[in-house]
């Protein structure tokens, strides 16, 4: 018998600190599988955000930098400009990318920086225990919307893929999800394509990954997946917004 599934080399053999059932772990593995399959671990540099994954530089075997909250796209810009032949990615949450880091992601995209952003949208601030995020849904209860998010008080959720797809520099924009096996496999395809778009030097690529937060959603891991499917997907429709047919 042959091994058909095991930890990818690009993912360090260390336990990860994420809560039980948190889909960050899956996303990390998918990225590492892509680095292995494209054989680019040795020439990749990743950027960790601030948030639950603030130290995911300890989980990847490629070189990594940890960035101030929201600034990963700027840090990645600096790295890529110094090493245009290397592959550079940022891993960011919804607070990091769509709240404090909105300017950085918009301008990295509009500059067409040849970097890849993996944007994990779980509609809440995990690390700081459950506050509202820019992607928190209307009526969703969080520690800072205890009566549910109300537009007249807390504004509306931000659809990042739709927002960024209006920018010419963003050449590959896709939203995927973790809520079942088919979608996890589809997410890996999108992540792989995004990295290939970067390697082909086409421009800025981003994959938005709908993800769960069992702890702060107050749900069991599989209930959380169901909640994601029933509540987040209507607000954040899955699919490719740009670059589906790009030759890579």
């Amino acid at each position: 018998m042959a091994v058909v599934f095991k930890r990818p080399h690009a993912l360090r053999d260390v336990p990860m600190h994420y809560c039980p059932g948190c889909t960050h772990g899956i996303i990390h593995r998918l990225i590492a599988e892509v680095l292995d399959e494209l054989d680019i671990e040795g020439k990749t540099i990743g950027v960790s955000p601030v948030g639950c994954t603030y130290n995911n530089y300890e989980y990847f075997n490629c070189d990594m930098q940890q960035a101030a909250h929201g600034r990963a796209p700027a840090v990645a810009t600096g790295i890529k400009r110094v090493h245009p032949d290397k592959v550079v990615f940022t891993y960011q949450g919804d607070g990091d990318l769509a709240a404090i880091g909105t300017a950085e992601i918009v301008h990295a995209a509009t500059r067409g920086e040849k970097i890849t952003t993996i944007f994990v949208n779980n509609a809440i601030y995990g690390m700081t225990s459950g506050q509202m995020a820019p992607t928190t849904l209307i009526n969703q209860v969080t520690t800072t919307t205890p009566y549910g998010r109300k537009p007249e008080l807390h504004g509306y959720p931000i659809r990042v893929c739709e927002l960024l797809s209006t920018l010419d520099g963003a050449v590959f924009v896709e939203r995927v999800s973790m809520h079942d096996i088919k979608n996890i496999m589809n997410a890996k395809k999108a992540i792989k394509k995004a990295f290939q778009v970067q390697i082909a030097g086409k421009g800025f690529s981003i994959v938005e990954v709908l993800s769960t937060c069992p702890t702060n959603w107050g749900k069991s891991p599989d209930e959380a997946l169901k909640w994601l499917k029933d509540n987040m997907i209507p607000m954040y429709p899955l699919g490719n917004f740009k670059g589906k047919d790009l030759e890579v």
Partner: peptide
Amino acid sequence: PDCVIEVE
């Protein structure tokens, strides 16, 4: 999420 399982 934690690479617990290897498959042959």
